[in-house]
Design a protein around this nucleic acid. Structure first.
Lengths: 198, 198
DNA sequence: TTGAAATCTGAATGATTGCTCACATTTCGC
DNA sequence: GCGAAATGTGAGCAATCATTCAGATTTCAA
């Protein structure tokens, strides 16, 4: 039984690794989980099947890595937006956060949807939940500047609402990211403005 | 080559047909698209594999039928809600519509999510888009009573926002449908209240 | 009661796919 | 340059799965 290679020492191995992940992403976008065979990944990445197993113990691990990468980048982008707007007005801060999160996903909306679907059925559930919770915390911090009575549930809802809009736009093949952003902004600000007073 | 049976004449055949569809739904809920093999469907339905092919030309056709059924029921439920609230206040009408659509999906939220995923990658795209558009029209009619300036895009967004909240709740295993409804109501009414004045 | 149509059965088939392994090629410190 | 470590190769194995088909069982009109 092959153990995946412990450490990549040469530059070319990192190139291969990246190629595999990117090939996986592209195949997911174009074919969904159906066309995603190990042979297809290898071909698309321009390497042989064997190479996949030098870096990943199995197909699921490739997906897991891809998903982790995506999630990590999304989180970083949102953190950055929060930090960048500490001196801005609350409304601007919320806007920037939406824009950061939304645009990040909107760059590859189909991929974002696939990733979300796969996450559910992978052993990543716990890990993903933890990351989602951290994301909700950052959202909460910003949202509270606008609506101090907001709680974690509201933060999660803001994320959910945004995701819903992105997915719908992706399925409809909607091209205009800015129009989408404007509507997401309305949805989020509208939701927050309806918070029960207490 | 087997042609799927043209017409079911005996009662037992309808029982079998229903059992196959329901078994497919249950498997989707519990295992996702992975565990969904024809043999598993047959076993769960308490029939033999051969029987599947008496009623469906292939596996995809089973899924297509399931999806069509679900969509049809959802549409009917929402139409009913609209008709039932023609004399009610605009706010109540919107509420009833949300409740009808949301609760229908929330009964089996995991299945709803799977169905939505599969729809995308099946040849149902056009058919589904048509149904979605019809749904949007019904939503629009009701939403306009509250916000006359609303257009088709807003109606679609209302649906998307609600879907986003349902999916998030499903993934989190949220048990309280009523709390979810309250938040969906806030989100939708909030979104509509932020409509640009014109 | 009977026989033809309807329905059901499940082992067998062929295609697909995840993964392995024995070997080839490339890199790099010395 | 040299050799060992790192990296890459791809035909082929074993498992899985959608689908078929020849025949068994059930239904029902006459």
């Amino acid at each position: 039984m092959h153990q995946p290679r412990k450490q990549a020492r040469q530059a070319r191995s990192r190139v291969t690794q990246t190629a595999i992940i990117e090939a996986t992403a592209r195949l997911l976008e174009s074919q969904g989980r159906n066309g995603l065979t190990t042979n297809a990944i290898a071909e698309r990445a321009g390497v042989s099947v064997g190479s996949l197993y030098q870096y990943f113990p199995n197909k699921e691990a490739i997906l897991a890595t891809l998903i982790r990468d995506k999630r990590q980048k999304l989180l970083k982008g949102m953190q950055q937006a929060v930090l960048d707007t500490q001196d801005a007005s609350p409304a601007d801060a919320v806007e920037a956060l939406i824009r950061a999160g939304m645009m990040h996903q909107y760059e590859r909306p189909t991929l974002a949807f696939e990733v979300e679907y796969i996450e559910q059925r992978l052993e990543l559930a716990d890990e993903t939940a933890a990351l989602a919770e951290e994301m909700a915390q950052w959202v909460l911090a910003t949202v509270r500047r606008l609506q101090p009575s907001a709680g974690l549930q509201e933060a999660r809802d803001v994320v959910a609402i945004t995701k819903g809009l992105i997915n719908a736009a992706a399925m409809a093949g909607e091209p205009d990211g800015n129009a989408l952003f404007a509507r997401a902004r309305r949805a989020v600000l509208g939701y927050l403005s309806q918070m029960p007073e207490t």
